[in-house]
């Protein structure tokens, strides 16, 4: 075999394990889900193989699913907005800190060492009727009766922010860390105030990181079901909860498959829009 031919083959040989994994672990299961979505669930709970459009008609035509999907996107958008609002200053502080950057980044990563479910449940001990916050307020005499703070949409959003904030901070940090600080100095030397140099130089240059963090927070937030299950009230469901219920509680795998593909399609379109205008490079940097 010639050197050129070997060199042409080499990337494919190196990519083989990754491509095999992606094919077997992602595309093949996805194909199963697509096939399942056309089956039907019988009265006993068994599946009826075939090609039926009933699940898709239900998923796409039923106002119930549309409303919950819109509510999910709304909650994910609010969460992303607050993550950006809180995450940007934190990322800016880390990026501009001198000497202790590594420690600050380590502190940012610490929550990932604890299970997401445990982190979510910790809010029960903080916001519960006999939780830390109510106990403190009562001890200080601010309130006489505990306030009911848990099990509503606000606590679901709070739990999601807790879960997703590090993703935002990391993405913005990567973006800010790559900006040459001489640019800010140059703006200042040309008469700009610190605020003006931030607004006109730093912020625009860090927008790709903010967008990448926003995309991650939005997609992960829209796909979660644990947070509403633990911190939500009876009505506070997100779309992934419907998928969970269809598959686990109702044993309706075909409908659950159609619903999960519907969510995947909606989030996929968002990722494609992001990729069209901003590209995936920044996202890869943040994840790296």
């Amino acid at each position: 075999m010639s050197v050129e031919a070997r060199e042409r083959k080499q990337p494919w040989i190196l990519l083989t394990p990754a491509l095999t994994s992606v094919t077997l672990l992602l595309f093949v299961p996805l194909l199963f889900i697509v096939v399942y979505s056309f089956w039907l669930r019988t009265a006993t709970g068994a599946d009826d193989p075939g090609f039926h459009l009933d699940n898709w008609q239900k998923a796409l035509g039923d106002a119930f699913y549309r409303d919950i999907l819109l509510s999910t996107l709304r909650i994910a958008a609010i969460t992303t907005f607050f993550c950006a609002l809180m995450g940007y200053p934190a990322a800016y502080f880390i990026a501009r800190s001198k000497g202790n950057k590594a420690i600050l980044l380590l502190l940012l990563m610490l929550p990932f060492w604890i299970s997401y479910i445990i982190r979510t449940m910790s809010w029960i001990n903080i916001l519960g009727v006999s939780g830390a916050l109510n106990s403190a307020l009562m001890a200080l005499g601010v309130i006489t009766e505990p306030i009911q703070m848990l099990y509503n949409e606000a606590t679901v959003i709070l739990g999601l922010i807790h879960y997703l904030l590090p993703f935002m901070v990391l993405n913005v940090f990567v973006s800010l860390d790559g900006i040459d600080t001489n640019l800010e100095d140059a703006a200042n030397s040309l008469g700009a105030t610190r605020w003006q140099s931030f607004l006109n130089v730093t912020l625009p240059l860090s927008l790709p990181g903010l967008a990448a963090g926003g995309l991650l927070c939005f997609v992960l937030g829209a796909g979660t079901y644990i947070t509403p299950l633990v911190l939500g009230g009876p009505r506070d469901a997100m779309f992934a909860n419907l998928v969970f219920e269809a598959i686990i509680t109702q044993l309706n795998w075909p409908l659950g498959s159609a619903l999960s593909l519907m969510l995947l399609a909606v989030l996929g379109v968002l990722v494609m829009i992001y990729n069209r205008y901003l590209g995936m490079t920044q996202l890869m940097k943040g994840l790296g």
């Binding site: 119930f64 009876p234 469901a237």
Partner: peptide, 8 residues
Amino acid sequence: ETFGRVKR
């Protein structure tokens, strides 16, 4: 299935 809707 109905309960899934009613509770929402």
